[in-house]
Computed example of a mutant assay.
Amino acid sequence: MTPNQPSFLVLTLPALAVVLSFVVLILFPALRLRSHRLLLSFSGAFLLGITLFELFPEVYRDFEMRQAGVFIALGILLQIVLEFFSRGAEHGHLHHKGEQSGISGILFLSLGIHAFLEGIPLVQNPDVVWGISIHKIPVALIFGSFLLGSGKTPTQSWVVVVIFALMTPLGAIFGNLTMLQNIYPYLLALVIGMILHVSTIILFESSKDHAVNLKRFGVIVLGMVLAYLL
């Protein structure tokens, strides 16, 4: 596989999604307390659709089928481990009410690893950048709300946000290194497993008490259709 040059969108859009979400939180503090269920549902559906329509065909084209399944399963397991430390922030739920400063480093590390790895397929699959970037908006809102309530100074919060915003573009550059092209299919399968876990959990958890909701169903359908048309 011949590496491609990272596009401007791949290097900027995921980072902008994080930074602008944090700016919105600062300008509109009430958003820190609001539920983002519809946004989560749309982002989860869009991300899942992009994975099914773009990433699955590639990994099964370049990979022996049984091996692909093994690494996709490993990706699911890796994401479960990461969520043990991130408290579920990747899918829009930070399951923690206690002392925030004590887990902020672990939370950042877990989210950073997730963000870095999900950038790996972006250069070879530039359309996926839209799904990753939309997914980052609710994650950034949750993580940003956590930071703003953790007692950190504005400068400290901005440093953390900027580093987090850069992780996915750095992952895209890493995944495009010539020396890694022989193992790229393995990395891609691993990322697919992570995205599958996150997107399906979003779809299950974004409904209150798992009740049928026409608005939620509508945004899920919209997310899938847009992912197909992209």
Rank of each mutant, 00 (worst) to 15 (best):
S133T: 10
I134H: 05
Y186W: 15
V219K: 09
F217R: 03
N213E: 14
F146Y: 06
I192Y: 07
K136R: 06
Q181A: 00
F174S: 02
R216V: 11
L188C: 09
V219R: 06
A189M: 03
G171C: 02
H135C: 15
V129E: 01
V139H: 06
Q156D: 08
T153V: 10
V221C: 13
S199T: 05
F174W: 04
F164V: 12
V128C: 05
L190V: 09
G175I: 02
K215E: 08
L214S: 15
L166D: 00
L170F: 14
Q156A: 13
M179G: 05
I183R: 06
K215I: 05
N182L: 03
V198I: 08
V191E: 05
L177Q: 14
V198W: 00
R216C: 13
I132K: 02
W158K: 06
D127H: 08
A140P: 01
V212D: 06
R216Y: 14
L166Y: 00
L190I: 08
I132Y: 04
L222F: 09
V160P: 02
T178Q: 11
L148F: 05
T153A: 10
P154M: 12
E205K: 04
L196E: 05
A165L: 03
K136F: 14
F204H: 15
F143A: 04
V191K: 02
Y184I: 12
L196F: 10
I163K: 05
K215P: 06
N213V: 11
N176D: 14
K136G: 09
L196P: 01
V159G: 02
S206H: 11
V160A: 11
R216M: 15
W158E: 12
V160M: 11
I137A: 00
H210Q: 11
K152L: 13
A189K: 00
V191T: 02
S150I: 05
L166F: 01
I134T: 11
F204V: 15
S145P: 13
F204E: 15
L222H: 02
I134S: 07
S150N: 06
G193Y: 12
M179I: 07
L166H: 00
V219D: 06
S145H: 15
L196S: 03
H197D: 11
V191M: 04
P169V: 01
W130D: 06
S206L: 08
P185L: 01
T153L: 07
